[in-house]
C-alpha cells in the first residue's frame, strides 16, 4: 500500500543503519545501567545514565520513523512502544528480585 513503503533516497541509507544499530545499543545501555544500579554495583547517580539512555532511545526511534517515512499514526505507535520499553527492565528486575528472594531463602538446591 502506498502509505506503507515510500521510496528512500540512498543518502539516507547510512543514517538508517547507524540509527537502528544505536537503537538496540541504547536499549541495552538503558537495561544495563538500570540493573547495575539496582544491584548496587554502580552508584545511584548512574541511574541518570539509564534514563538518559532511554531518552536518547526515544529520540532515535522518532528519527528512524522519520527516515523510514512512516505514517504519523505509526510514529505514535512507535513512541508508545518506547513507553512500554521504559517499563520492561523494571518488570524483569522485579521478577528476578522476587524469585531470588523466594528461592534463595529456602535451603539451597535439592
Amino acid at each position: 500500500m502506498e502509505y506503507y513503503i515510500q521510496d528512500i533516497p540512498s543518502s539516507d541509507f547510512l543514517s538508517i543503519f547507524v540509527v537502528s544499530a544505536l537503537i538496540i545499543l541504547f536499549g541495552m545501555a538503558y537495561a544495563g545501567f538500570f540493573t547495575l544500579v539496582k544491584l548496587k554495583l554502580l552508584k545511584r547517580f548512574y541511574m541518570l545514565f539509564a534514563y538518559g539512555s532511554w531518552l536518547v532511545l526515544v529520540g532515535l526511534m522518532y528519527y528512524l520513523g522519520e527516515l523510514l517515512r512512516v505514517e504519523p499514526y505509526t510514529q505514535k505507535v512507535l513512541i508508545g512502544a518506547m513507553v512500554g520499553y521504559l517499563i520492561f527492565p523494571h518488570i524483569v528486575y522485579f521478577l528476578l528480585d522476587r524469585v531470588h528472594n523466594r528461592f534463595e531463602r529456602e535451603p539451597t538446591k535439592p
Binding site: 536499549g27 537495561a31 544495563g32 540493573t35 520492561f88 524483569v92
Partner: peptide, 20 residues
C-alpha cells in the same frame, strides 16, 4: 525478537552481580 535477548542479558548481569 531482540527483547528476549535483552531479558537474557539482564538476567545474566543479575546473576553475576548477585554471585559476586
Amino acid at each position: 525478537e531482540p527483547v528476549p535477548l535483552v531479558g537474557l542479558f539482564v538476567h545474566v548481569l543479575y546473576d553475576w552481580g548477585k554471585e559476586r
